[in-house]
Amino acid sequence: MKIVRARDYDDMSRKVANIISAQVILKPDCVLGLATGSTPIGAYRQLAGWNQKGDCDFSQVSTYNLDEYRGLSHDDPQSYHYFMKTNFFDHVNIDQANTHVPDGSNPDADAACKEYDRIVAAAGYPDLQLLGIGNNGHIGFNEPDDHFSKGTHCVNLTESTIQANSRLFDRIEDVPRQAYTMGVQTIMFAKMIVIAANGSAKAQAVHDMCYGPVTPQCPASILQLHDNVVVVADEAALALCPAE
């Protein structure tokens, strides 16, 4: 793993956006794996600004998101389809037919997950996969478990994840209890992985991801076994990691 230190959230966002834009410039028809949540919003805004100035062209890019809540329609304001449109896709020149998010509106979990695995594999897996990391070390919605997951699957969200996501809902009762997520093995098929992290709440998870044992109790720790991983984190998120 390569660790890139950032001063704060804005600096982290610029550094992440720089890596993504370099990928797009070097391979205009690249496949990007994208993440949701509050962490990548700053990077998406930076990329949108560069796109609008003509510095980064997304017209040939295709994207595959990590996950989606089960039971939400694509136009639900809390869905990740909606999140990606409002925070990124509507602000860049990407062909939205080339953007993909698991179909949380499909009640048939097995069919929805198999179909998503099929299209991600057909695309050749991401050239660059962007990840956040949960307070409990989850990546995507792969929660701590007794094994590492493989393909896209339906997960029961842990209480800590439900609590963390409740800030985005009017009531905690409205937070979905299940989600469809790419599996850990699928994530590991990406050619390059970039993990963004900020804030002291992520410090233990970042330490365990980078320096702890490889264990499904910290799903992100599997990334130690990937040969092209860049961790971009601010000083607060790196507080428990040795200075390098």
Rank of each mutant, 00 (worst) to 15 (best):
R5Q: 08
D10W: 04
M12S: 01
K15E: 04
I20K: 04
S21K: 15
Q23W: 09
Q23Y: 13
I25S: 15
L26H: 15
K27M: 10
V31Q: 02
L32A: 05
L32D: 03
G33V: 09
A35K: 05
A35V: 08
T36H: 02
S38C: 07
S38A: 09
P40Y: 00
I41W: 04
G42I: 00
Q46P: 11
Q46Y: 12
L47S: 15
G49F: 09
W50Q: 11
N51C: 12
N51T: 13
C56M: 12
F58M: 02
S59Y: 02
V61S: 03
Y64M: 07
Y64R: 05
L66A: 00
D67L: 02
D67P: 00
R70K: 07
P77E: 00
Q78M: 14
Q78G: 15
Y82R: 07
K85W: 11
T86H: 07
T86L: 03
N87A: 11
F88Q: 03
F88I: 03
D90R: 09
V92C: 06
D95F: 09
Q96T: 14
N98S: 14
T99V: 06
P102Q: 07
D103L: 15
S105H: 15
P107I: 11
A109H: 13
A112W: 11
K114P: 10
R118W: 12
I119R: 12
P126M: 01
Q129M: 12
L130N: 02
L131P: 06
G132W: 05
I133M: 01
I133L: 05
G134C: 03
N135D: 13
G140H: 01
G140P: 09
F141R: 01
E143Q: 12
D146G: 08
H147E: 05
F148T: 08
T152R: 02
C154M: 08
L157K: 05
S160F: 09
F169W: 12
D170I: 10
R171H: 13
Q178D: 12
Y180V: 11
Y180F: 13
Q185S: 14
I187L: 13
F189Y: 10
F189I: 02
A190T: 05
K191G: 01
M192W: 00
I193L: 03
A196R: 00
A197F: 00
A197N: 01
G199P: 01
K202Y: 11
K202F: 05
A203S: 13
A205L: 09
V206R: 08
H207N: 06
H207Q: 07
H207A: 06
C210D: 00
Y211A: 13
G212A: 04
G212V: 06
P213C: 14
V214M: 09
P219L: 01
S221N: 06
I222V: 13
Q224R: 11
H226Y: 06
D227R: 12
D227C: 09
N228H: 04
V229S: 00
V232I: 12
D234E: 04
E235D: 12
A236V: 14
A236L: 14
A236K: 14
A237W: 08
L238Q: 08
A239G: 15
